[in-house]
Nucleic acid binder design. Structure first.
Length: 280
DNA sequence: AGTTGGACCTGACTGC
DNA sequence: TGCAGTCAGGTCCAAC
């Protein structure tokens, strides 16, 4: 699942490769990909002919900053299975290709999306916080705003389970199933514990784990385990799955204490993985 | 308002 | 071998 580390991997690579290139033509192959925009024609009208000034990220979304008298941002939401590939135009098209962005240098930026949960949307301006997609988003985990004081006040009113709150983009942006499981293991906290039950030292462990686990995920270019199909823009898989302590390790011995890893359904239907001995 | 469950989507996997 | 059923989870929406 593309979460913050996968989106940041794509952002960094695109920043090196496509800044300065012009987006000549945008072709939609799967209509659903433009559903947030309303119409494919509007998406094309807002983006075609503009140059890419920069590449950003908000939570799990990759942002292409396009130039013009009235600048535009193309929001790439990866959903569950979204991939961005940068290829020579002569490269054969994968059947999962949902949209093609033709650049003026002979390359294609292709958006692949097996399960069609992803989307492309163009919004005016370059400030993500002014866009409806992100209006409810909490702070970025690596921002100054995301400090212990914020954590304390944001958790105080939450009766929901930690595993749920960590994945709530309103609490902090960018965390999904994989990294919430791994973060809670590193913090030594059970995903089923209520968010507001944390003591000061526990909050500090959680804060540190959020930053460390996400940073390690970025460093390893994201997770590409089992059915996680993540690849970077050149088609290379990430390596964070080699660092998994609990995610998708149900029944396997904990790497720290040997206790079999448990899997418990979370409100919302997702399963959380955790070690009954290491996590309290 | 915060929390919860269902819907969307399709490839991979399980069981008979 | 085949086919129905289940699972995976990011995000939105309706209902408590």
């Amino acid at each position: 699942m593309p979460e913050l580390p996968e989106a940041e991997t794509i952002r960094r690579q695109l920043e090196e490769e496509v800044v300065g290139a012009r987006l000549q033509r945008l072709t939609i192959h799967v209509g659903r990909v433009a559903r947030e925009q309303g119409s494919e024609a509007e998406l094309r009208a807002l983006t075609e002919g503009r140059s890419i000034e920069g590449v950003g990220r908000r939570g799990k979304a990759v942002l292409l900053f396009l130039d013009g008298r009235q600048p535009v941002t193309l929001i790439i939401r990866l959903g569950m299975t979204g991939l961005v590939r940068l290829v020579d135009r002569r490269e054969p098209q994968d059947k999962a290709t949902a949209a093609t962005l033709e650049l003026n240098d002979g390359r294609d930026l292709r958006f692949l999306d097996q399960r069609q949960f992803g989307s492309l949307t163009a919004r005016p301006g370059h400030d993500p916080d002014a866009m409806p997609e992100f209006s409810h988003y909490g702070p970025e985990p690596f921002s100054e705003e995301f400090d212990l004081e914020y954590l304390k006040s944001a958790l105080a009113r939450r009766t929901a389970k930690l595993g749920v709150v960590l994945m709530d983009q309103q609490f902090v942006a960018g965390i999904g199933k994989i990294y919430s499981d791994e973060i809670l293991f590193q913090a030594g906290l059970r995903p089923g514990r209520s968010a507001k039950s944390l003591t000061g030292p526990m909050r500090e462990r959680l804060w540190r784990a959020i930053r460390e686990v996400l940073a390690k995920g970025i460093e390893r270019h994201g997770s590409s385990a089992r059915d996680e199909t993540f690849r970077d823009i050149r088609g290379v898989p990430g390596r964070f799955q080699e660092c998994f302590y609990v995610y998708q390790r149900t029944g396997e011995p904990c790497r720290v204490c040997g206790t079999p890893i448990r899997r418990t359904p979370l409100p919302g239907g997702r399963g959380m993985h955790w070690c009954p001995t290491c996590q309290k």
